[in-house]
Design a protein around this nucleic acid. Structure first.
Lengths: 191, 191
DNA sequence: TCAACTAAGTACCGATCGGTACAGAAAAAG
DNA sequence: CTTTTTCTGTACCGATCGGTACTTAGTTGA
């Protein structure tokens, strides 16, 4: 019975990947156990609340990562154009150029949405809000910035859906680069 | 034992709604039975292949509906601008202004994707292709039409994700109206 | 050395899963 | 009417579900 010095935070990325690949219902405890290398005893030691607590922990970590690497930079005042451009690079890498699913988006479409509604709403609301602020500083008309930001954040999610359905990850990168140009140009432009 | 003169095609919309709300894994046979009013005996009479066949039948019906009401009109030669505009109205209604989930998109993000990969890919591929052709006839540069079409179809999917996560259906309608303007304007414009 | 505590494996729980078998009622055919 | 076919409800199957209880192995501190 090897004690594998595992900490709760060590298994979160593995957990996240299982939920990304199989969703909430599809990620059975046996799958989770296999993916993490932890037996039920260990899993329920770290997450007494079971699957629901596992998902919440994963969502919290994702939220923290985006807060630190995406939302907070967007809210920073310096060089908004560069910060917006960096956002696209960061999320492009995060989603593995379209090969990785967004867990928050996938949960939003599933019947687990109600259970985690708060976390899902928060994630997207803060993203849209932070991006809208940055777009205003870039020079977008304030009355349009909110809509553009929603279009961009939604566009990223839709690009993931489409790329995965078509099984063509490059669809994601192409759509995202189109969104990036829209943000840079403000409005109009030859694309 | 009331024989409820049900035909297979009558239960498809009910089935579709169950899968939309609960996904493939989440839609248990007991839920399906409750939603359709049919016992297991009837369900397996109509769909000997079980859940998988039910989803395939639902996807086929959805595909047929979009083929008739969206894809084929897009391919028609007459008044492409009006046809593209009509597409947005049609899908806006179909998705109940953001209150209804796209089953094809939801399945694409779930672990059931591999099982129905062909149908999912087909649906989106034909949509993008038909829209791209219409955009060219509207006046979009042919070398950009494919990308714009992918951006629009993906944008619709993303709008559904975002509207559902935020629990604000109007987010869907706003994003979709933005996409409509992009299609009408070709490139450029003040938004 | 020896408790005290924590980490982790295992067996098991009731419930539910998807699916099958079958009986029997309703409708159709004769 | 009888026969046949088409439905449909019910009981049941083995498997697996999420979760609990309990035991054991390893670590820690005295």
């Amino acid at each position: 019975m090897a004690r594998t010095v595992t900490e709760r935070s060590d298994v979160l990325p593995l957990l996240a990947e299982v939920f990304r690949e199989h969703g909430y219902e599809g990620a059975s405890l046996s799958l989770i156990s296999k993916a993490t290398g932890l037996g039920k005893g260990s899993l329920y030691h770290f997450f007494p609340g079971g699957k629901a607590e596992m998902v919440e922990a994963v969502l919290a970590e994702i939220d923290g990562w985006f807060e630190a690497n995406v939302f907070r930079p967007l809210r920073a005042a310096d060089d908004p154009a560069a910060v917006v451009a960096a956002m696209f690079t960061t999320v492009g890498d995060y989603f593995r150029s379209g090969r990785r699913v967004c867990l928050v988006g996938a949960l939003s479409l599933s019947d687990a949405r109600d259970r985690f509604a708060g976390a899902l709403r928060d994630y997207f609301a803060r993203w849209v809000e932070a991006l809208a602020g940055a777009l205003i500083r870039v020079g977008h008309p304030p009355e349009q910035a909110g809509d553009v930001a929603a279009e961009v954040v939604g566009g990223i999610q839709g690009a993931l859906v489409l790329a995965r359905a078509l099984d063509r990850p490059e669809v994601f990168t192409r759509i995202v680069s189109g969104l990036r140009e829209r943000c840079a140009l403000g409005e109009g432009g030859s694309g």
